[in-house]
């Protein structure tokens, strides 16, 4: 039956409608999101003042503190513990060399140049080899030294104050730190921009750990 266009269009559109199932689906979609927003709103509404105060306090402490917060206070002990642990394992050397020049050729992937330390020179030690290692997550050279009938371990790595904190510096006439770990004495110092950690193990090792 013919009718005016407007009337016919309204009749036509009345037949275009969402089913109950579709309506329920859409309402579920909307309600789920609204409930989620309400929960978040309630949470932040009640906690916001406390969160703001804590945030301001943390920022204030961070901004006024001269010491980086993420460096443990017992960093020297942690260094000594890591050095001694690897010293006792005596892992196989990757290179056998008696001179620091030969060692440098092998450690080409390091971001620093291994050097001879004045502290080690005083100890009457003989370099026998080394291997790649790390100290507190920083790539390092682990050198093995022969001292009489003992083997010692010498770590060298670049000195990063943000990682290691303050370590005594030889150039400032400061004495190396002496820390004991697992019964073994460890000297820790900074020299020419490198951090050194040297064991002074009293035991005579059964072998040199060289393969």
């Amino acid at each position: 039956m013919s009718q005016p266009l407007k009337q016919q269009l309204n009749r036509y559109f009345k037949q275009v409608e969402l089913s109950d199932r579709q309506l329920t689906e859409l309402e579920g979609l909307i309600n789920a999101q609204t409930e989620k927003e309400n929960r978040i709103g309630r949470f932040y509404g009640s906690k916001l003042p406390a969160i703001a105060i804590i945030l301001v306090a943390v920022i204030a402490i961070f901004m006024t503190s001269p010491i980086p917060r993420d460096i443990p206070k017992d960093m020297p002990r942690l260094i000594a513990e890591e050095v001694v642990k690897n010293h006792l394992k005596l892992k196989p050397l990757e290179i056998k060399a008696g001179t620091i020049n030969a060692i440098r050729g092998y450690f080409s992937k390091l971001e620093f140049m291994p050097i001879e330390s004045s502290v080690v020179s005083d100890e009457d030690m003989q370099l026998i080899g080394g291997r790649y290692c790390s100290l507190q997550g920083v790539t390092a050279a682990q050198l093995r030294m022969k001292q009489g009938r003992s083997l010692q371990t010498l770590y060298q790595t670049q000195y990063l104050p943000d990682v290691f904190g303050y370590i005594p510096q030889i150039e400032k006439d400061e004495s190396p730190l002496v820390v004991y770990a697992r019964g073994i004495k460890v000297k820790i110092w900074v020299e020419k921009g490198l951090l050194f950690a040297l064991t002074e193990s009293p035991e005579v090792n059964k072998n040199e750990g060289v393969q």
Binding site: S2, P4, L5, Q8, Y12
Partner: peptide, 16 residues
Amino acid sequence: TLEDIVIAGHDLALLW
């Protein structure tokens, strides 16, 4: 312009 148009429901459905 559109007010005076008269159309059958069937034609509208096809045309739409």
